[in-house]
Simulated assay, not measured.
Amino acid sequence: MKHSSWMLAVGKRLILSFFACLIISTVFLGIKPAVAEDIDSHLYFSNGVHNNVGCEDSCCVPPRKQTDPSDPQYPKWWVSDWTMYRVFNNYKQFPPPYDSPPQGLIANEDYEVSYGTTYYDSTYIPEDKDGKSAMMEYYEKRCLPIFPQDNKYTCSFVSLGNKAYFLSDGNHGNPPICLFSPENHPPRTDFIKHLPYNPEDSAHLNNSLQAYSLLVSPQAILFGYAFNKQPTPDSFDSTAKPYRHPQSFYFSGYPEEPPNAPIVSQNYTNFRMEQPNANIWREVAEMLPPNPELCCLFADDCIEKNSTENSPAASWDALRYSAP
């Protein structure tokens, strides 16, 4: 597997740290039942895309106009590389969705480039039967820049059913693997129904897109997806009917330094209907400790561990407080 060596290295660090903690707990504290941690701070609003948080009284399905195009859908499984643009200048003059590279913007002066790969399988069922589907987003050398920290490291987000985990080298305030959220499943194949159709965004790239986005107030946090308007054949499965390929995922990052990411766009390349190797999910599941520690990534994730004042900057963790 392409990223097996990196995951194996994370796994070795995880095993060593787990056994070290086990020995310390046994010798000095004695074995005690695990205490349930407060997980409310790790439930993130996504308007129904990743969970039902904030959707208790509705389905979080905005109405469509008769003039709107039909909704595109994800294939039941797929793999795609992508180029990530961390845009820090002139994003108001040139907003997303972007072409690749972004038109009107200058590399290094307006944006930084990094790369990654996403693996998706809507048919996966975890051993504990908690939810369905799996997804891994691998960020090479530049982690997802939505957190108030330097993102210059490799990381992955892996969802196995309803639970989502964060994997890294363990040198950024978190263990090598931690629980990002107990309720953060991969987008369903029909997830786009949860986002409003955006004609203005769809007009980008010579009106070649179907774009869907949500701007959450009062922080004005952007969350959007763009698909190519014209159906095209799949590069991997020649028997599949032409379909509207995903073009980009664009969103608000953490705007202050670091990581200085007011706007981020992941532009897909070689999106294909290839089923990910099942070893990806098996390897991650085998790496999990019995009770994974909650991640401390957002400013309010672990207040007792955060000695600095929370920043007033718009951030994804604020969505749990401002969900409409």
Rank of each mutant, 00 (worst) to 15 (best):
Y44L: 12
C55T: 00
I146A: 13
T67E: 15
V79T: 00
I106K: 02
H50Y: 09
N174H: 02
R86G: 07
D169P: 01
W78G: 13
I125D: 08
G131S: 06
S122A: 07
T154E: 03
V53C: 10
G161V: 08
K129W: 00
P145I: 00
P95I: 00
V158E: 14
D128Q: 02
Y74R: 11
V87M: 05
P63Q: 09
Y85N: 10
P63R: 10
Y44A: 01
P62W: 11
L144V: 10
N162L: 15
I106D: 00
L167I: 12
G48K: 12
Y119G: 11
Q73L: 07
I146P: 06
C143F: 14
N108V: 12
E56W: 10
Y165W: 11
Y74D: 10
W78Q: 14
E112D: 07
Y120R: 07
Q93W: 11
G54P: 12
S46G: 06
P75H: 02
D121H: 12
D71E: 07
D81Y: 10
V87I: 15
A134Q: 09
E109Y: 11
M136K: 03
H172E: 10
G104V: 02
P62E: 08
Q149A: 14
F94V: 04
H185R: 15
Y85G: 00
T123G: 00
K132I: 04
G173I: 02
D81M: 03
S114V: 06
E109S: 10
P175I: 06
Y120L: 03
I125R: 13
Y115M: 01
H50F: 05
P95F: 04
L43V: 13
C155S: 15
F88I: 00
K92W: 08
N162T: 15
P145Q: 03
K163W: 00
E112Y: 14
D169Y: 04
P69W: 12
E140C: 01
K129L: 06
Y111M: 07
P102S: 01
C178Y: 15
D150Q: 12
L179N: 10
W82R: 15
P102C: 05
D150R: 10
H172S: 12
S100T: 14
F180K: 14
S181Q: 15
N171L: 14
F45V: 09
